[in-house]
């Protein structure tokens, strides 16, 4: 397993947000974490990427114990995290944002990969010298993903890929996840958009109030009518 988390307990002050979460992601696999607002999805991602530290449990990545490693070191090991809200720097240009992505790899020239990002997202090449704040929501998400890819990750984690985007764009980005996966990258998606996510994911976790209520294939989750209705609001 590329990523293996066991018994993660994470809290803010008195309040516990995650009560013993175990999760795995293999190489070349798309894993999705679904759940309602406040279920602990973002907390989980932040813990896995080293931004938060767990009170109990352990995380191993690519053969290293990374339970106590800070985020900036995990980037060098190959975990890249697209934070909630994309985190594109509005005042910097598109190319400057991309250069930031390669920060941990000693710059875009050393990282290579820039041509590949422009190939995946031609619109970024067209707008390379525009401030990122001028991009549409979908283009900003593409920029955020492209920026993360320049860190040459083995595991790409995306917090709310579909948030605030038109269905057509979401569809396009989900297709892209599939493309990335076929190139051997692992993807961990944290999502509220159930239908689109279930189409691309290999395995799904359902997070409810800091517990894992379900894990398995998308088909198996679809068969759990009660879970789908109660926690994901779908029929």
């Amino acid at each position: 397993m590329l990523l293996q988390a066991e018994g993660l307990r994470v809290g803010y002050g008195e309040m516990m947000a995650l009560h013993g979460i175990s999760l795995q992601a293999g190489a070349g696999e798309i894993v999705a974490v679904l759940g309602a607002n406040g279920a602990g999805k973002t907390t989980l991602l932040r813990t896995l990427s080293g931004l938060l530290s767990a009170r109990a449990g352990r995380i191993s990545f690519d053969g290293h114990d990374v339970s106590r490693r800070p985020a900036h070191q995990l980037v060098r090991l190959g975990i890249s995290h697209v934070p909630e809200g994309r985190g594109v720097l509005a005042e910097l240009t598109v190319i400057e944002n991309l250069q930031l992505g390669a920060y941990a790899r000693g710059g875009v020239r050393k990282s290579g990969g820039l041509d590949r990002v422009f190939e995946l997202f031609p619109v970024l090449a067209e707008r390379r010298d525009q401030p990122a704040g001028m991009l549409s929501g979908g283009e900003q998400q593409m920029l955020a993903i492209g920026r993360s890819l320049l860190a040459r990750p083995k595991l790409l984690m995306i917090d709310e890929l579909s948030l605030g985007l038109a269905p057509r764009i979401v569809h396009q980005l989900m297709d892209l996840m599939h493309t990335i996966k076929t190139e051997g990258l692992s993807v961990l998606l944290v999502e509220q958009n159930v239908h689109q996510t279930l189409k691309v994911a290999d395995r799904v976790y359902l997070l409810v109030n800091g517990h894992i209520a379900f894990q398995g294939t998308p088909d198996a989750l679809r068969a759990e009518g009660d879970l789908m209705r109660t926690y994901l609001g779908t029929d």
Partner: peptide, 24 residues
């Protein structure tokens, strides 16, 4: 340059800065 971009990033959003590999 690289240092300026890193500083501007952490000045705007520390979470993003860390997830890009910047040692705050």
């Amino acid at each position: 340059g690289k240092t300026g971009r890193a500083l501007r990033t952490l000045g705007t959003n520390e979470i993003v800065a860390q997830s890009l590999g910047i040692n705050l």
